[in-house]
């Protein structure tokens, strides 16, 4: 029950502004919460951590614990933490850190305190920002419009079977894989079956949100050796219900759609750029005069849009 968006630029630019526009145009599809996954310029060394804490009164002790865990995994802060100064109970933090020796074991330990402060994303480029409210509110609060980068995802959520809370917002990071994020529009009807199986394998779920399952499920498939393309194709037959989801990594954005041709995605591609959104009217915000869009509205579709900047560099 959502609106989603994806954007790829053919060179680094105002991807934050574009995603805010795409999501603002779809605010009527859900304004419980809005979130963004933005691929910003990688740091010379190390990675970026985005966090959400749930009780501002404990901010200092929460952060101390986060740093303690980072240090015990061979990491440390490279710069001072950036913390939002809003009056909400929950708070968000951005860290620049030296890469942990083993991201997987670091995040496993960091997740032990996720009831107090949760890691939203980790990567050399990926930054996930999410909050309650519509696109404008979240953009204003987190200065999204000025964020520069190559590509990213957006999501507006109308809560279905899980609660309205900042943490249940999309996008979801495909922990523990750095720089992988997911947004989803739809409802998964074999959610608990998959969740139980994945939990038995040791995966930890941060929310009751069925979209988080997709992030974990794709991670699991990748760990089993499937390529992203293979995982996307497999998801169409393994995940039941209706869905359109987009997954992003350093190399670009992938898409998979359910077998019933239900949830839409409208795209406009040209010269290595991509504009993708649930509704065509969102595309209009960025390309008011281009109508040669392509509708991903058939059954069982998958697609990968590679990032041209990466291709050129390779």
């Amino acid at each position: 029950m959502c609106g989603i968006a994806g954007r790829i630029l053919n060179q680094e630019g105002g991807v934050g502004r574009d995603l805010v526009e795409l999501m603002d145009a779809q605010a009527h599809r859900g304004a419980d919460s809005t979130g963004f996954a933005i691929y910003t310029k990688p740091l010379p060394e190390g990675g970026k951590v985005r966090l959400m804490g749930f009780d501002r009164r404990n901010l200092n002790s929460d952060l101390d614990d986060v740093i303690k865990i980072l240090k015990s995994h061979g990491s440390d802060l490279l710069t001072d933490p950036q913390i939002d100064d809003a009056s909400t109970t929950h708070y968000s933090v951005r860290l620049e850190v030296r890469e942990p020796a083993n991201v997987e074991s670091w995040i496993a330990e960091a997740d032990l305190i996720s009831n107090r402060i949760e890691v939203l994303s980790y990567g050399i480029s990926l930054e996930i920002i999410k909050d309650v409210g519509d696109a404008k509110a979240v953009a204003d609060k987190h200065n999204l419009r000025i964020m520069q980068g190559t590509h990213g995802l957006g999501h507006a959520r109308l809560a279905t079977e899980s609660d309205v809370s900042p943490k249940a917002s999309h996008p979801f990071w495909a922990r523990p894989f750095p720089d992988v994020a997911i947004v989803h529009n739809g409802q998964i009807t074999n959610y608990y079956l998959w969740r139980d199986k994945l939990e038995l394998q040791g995966y930890r779920f941060m929310t009751e949100n069925d979209s988080e399952l997709l992030a974990v499920w794709i991670s699991d498939q990748k760990r089993k050796g499937l390529s992203l393309q293979q995982a996307l194709i497999k998801s169409v037959s393994e995940i039941d219900g209706v869905f359109t989801f987009m997954i992003s990594d350093l190399n670009g954005i992938g898409l998979a759609k359910d077998r019933f041709a239900m949830k839409p995605l409208v795209t406009l591609e040209s010269e290595g750029e991509l504009i993708a959104a649930t509704e065509e009217q969102a595309v209009r915000r960025i390309a008011p005069d281009r109508w040669d869009v392509f509708n991903y509205d058939g059954p069982s579709m998958t697609q990968i849009w590679p990032l041209r900047t990466i291709e050129a560099a390779a």
Binding site: M1, G3, H28, R29, T160, N185, G186, T278
Partner: peptide, 9 residues
């Protein structure tokens, strides 16, 4: 329409 999001429209 297929979901509450479209139902709003």
């Amino acid at each position: 329409f297929l979901g509450a999001d479209d139902m709003a429209v």
